[in-house]
Design a protein around this nucleic acid. Structure first.
Ligand SMILES: [Mn+2]
Ligand SMILES: [Mn+2]
Ligand SMILES: [Zn+2]
Ligand SMILES: [Zn+2]
Lengths: 140, 140
DNA sequence: AAGAGGAGTTAGACACAGTCCAACCGTTGC
DNA sequence: GCAACGGTTGGACTGTGTCTAACTCCTCTT
């Protein structure tokens, strides 16, 4: 687990580096995601950002998350059919998903090797390889 | 690609084997999925089943797909944040997803090796490992 | 044949994540 | 002061998927 300290200043710098104008709302959302560390859904981010008093609208949360995605600040993890998780970790890594608790954990990519994937037809370019280990913790 | 011929009779037998009472609607839905071969979303299945004249309601399509899942006749593939794909192939295998065309293709599991996945905490049981190769075909 | 019961199906209401839009706000430049 | 522009906003809207209460269809019992 990364123990990076995210100051307001370092977040602003990061936004600028990725060509994102650092507005108040964007900084708050970046803080929610990078400060917490990992894997929040849009409504969890919404809740964190608007903890004390309402500050940021639903539209802005989605606008900002999609902007961050486009600018490659974050990535999305699709494991649950009814909500997307946003991942502040853009390094290549894999995921472990507990369907019972809803918890999503990182698996270090450097430990894992995948071999034998077929080569792709011409003109097709790989965006990434997702690996999701699905588990259950509650006994059935 | 599997070239299995699915007769009405063999589908009924399959449903019975999985403890599913073979009603008209269930046979139609099984036919849509197994007849077509691979990876349809709920509304694609709906469209195939109700091709000529309306026969099967949305509720029944979802009821039936969830029943088939529960009875392990099919599996679900979660790659697109706004629709689930249903997969008549329950053998272990992986997927290739083209985000531009929306096409989902199988990757034979026997060719692929994954090593180095961490072992899990006690009491946690693996449901499966999903591998999704994400590609783009349209040049950007 | 008549009725009870149970499994399955149905239309339509509903829930809810995510998008869209037109009005609005805040800063910058003239 | 005022225009211009990027960003934000509430609220309407869309698309998947679920829920419910009424209904249909079979089978079983008498
Ligand atoms: Mn604030
Ligand atoms: Mn028919
Ligand atoms: Zn992650
Ligand atoms: Zn498949």
């Amino acid at each position: 687990m990364n123990r990076i300290q995210h100051t307001r200043e370092s977040l602003i710098a990061m936004l600028r580096r990725h060509d994102v104008n650092p507005t108040h709302q964007r900084i708050e959302i970046a803080y929610a995601l990078f400060g917490h560390g990992a894997h929040l859904s849009a409504d969890q981010i919404m809740a964190r950002v608007n903890g004390r008093h309402s500050e940021t609208s639903k539209a802005t949360v989605y606008n900002t998350l999609n902007l961050f995605l486009e600018k490659q600040l974050i990535r999305e993890v699709i494991v649950d059919p009814n909500k997307v998780f946003y991942d502040p970790n853009t390094e290549p890594h894999y995921h472990l998903y507990d369907a019972d608790t809803g918890e999503l954990t990182d698996i270090d990519a450097s430990e894992v090797t995948i071999s034998g994937l077929p080569q792709l037809p011409a003109g097709v370019v790989t965006e990434g390889v997702d690996v999701i280990v699905r588990v259950r913790s509650r006994l059935r």
